[in-house]
C-alpha cells in the first residue's frame, strides 16, 4: 500500500462516520453516503479500476473522471444547502412576523 492511501482512507471513513452519526437520519441518505464512502475507498485502493472506468466512459485519466464527479457532487450539495437555507429563512420570517404582530403597540 502506498502512503497516500493510508492518509485518504481514514479521512473518508471519518467523514462518513461523522455524517452518519451527526447529520442524516433518513435511511436512504445513510445508504447513499455509505455507498459513496465505500466507492471512494475502492477507488483509492484500486486506482487502475478508476482508469479503466474512465477509459470506458471516454475520459482519458481516472483522476479526471473523479474530479468531474466530485464537482458535480459539490454543486449538488451546494444547491441542497441553498434550498435548506431558504426553508430556514421562511421559518425565521414566520417567527419574526408572529413576534412582531403579538407585540404590536397601538397608540
Amino acid at each position: 500500500m502506498r502512503l497516500i492511501q493510508f492518509l485518504l482512507i481514514p479521512a473518508i471513513a471519518f467523514v462518513v462516520i461523522v455524517y452518519l452519526r451527526r447529520f442524516r437520519t433518513l435511511l436512504l441518505d445513510r445508504l447513499l453516503i455509505l455507498a459513496v464512502g465505500v466507492f471512494g475507498i475502492v477507488m483509492i485502493l484500486r486506482p487502475d479500476w478508476t482508469s479503466k472506468l474512465a477509459n470506458d466512459l471516454g475520459v482519458g485519466r481516472g483522476t479526471d473522471l473523479v474530479s468531474y464527479f466530485g464537482l458535480l457532487g459539490l454543486t449538488f450539495f451546494c444547491l441542497l444547502l441553498w434550498s435548506k437555507l431558504r426553508d430556514l429563512e421562511a421559518k425565521l420570517t414566520e417567527m419574526a412576523r408572529a413576534i412582531a404582530i403579538t407585540k404590536a403597540e397601538e397608540k
Binding site: A96, R97, I99, A100, I101, K103, A104, E105, E106, K107
Partner: peptide, 19 residues
C-alpha cells in the same frame, strides 16, 4: 399615534410589508 410593529431581526422590505 399609530400601530407600531417591530421585527426582532432585519428581514427585508418584502417581509415587513407582509407583516
Amino acid at each position: 399615534p399609530l400601530y407600531a410593529l417591530r421585527h426582532p431581526i432585519n428581514l427585508g422590505q418584502g417581509a415587513a410589508l407582509q407583516t
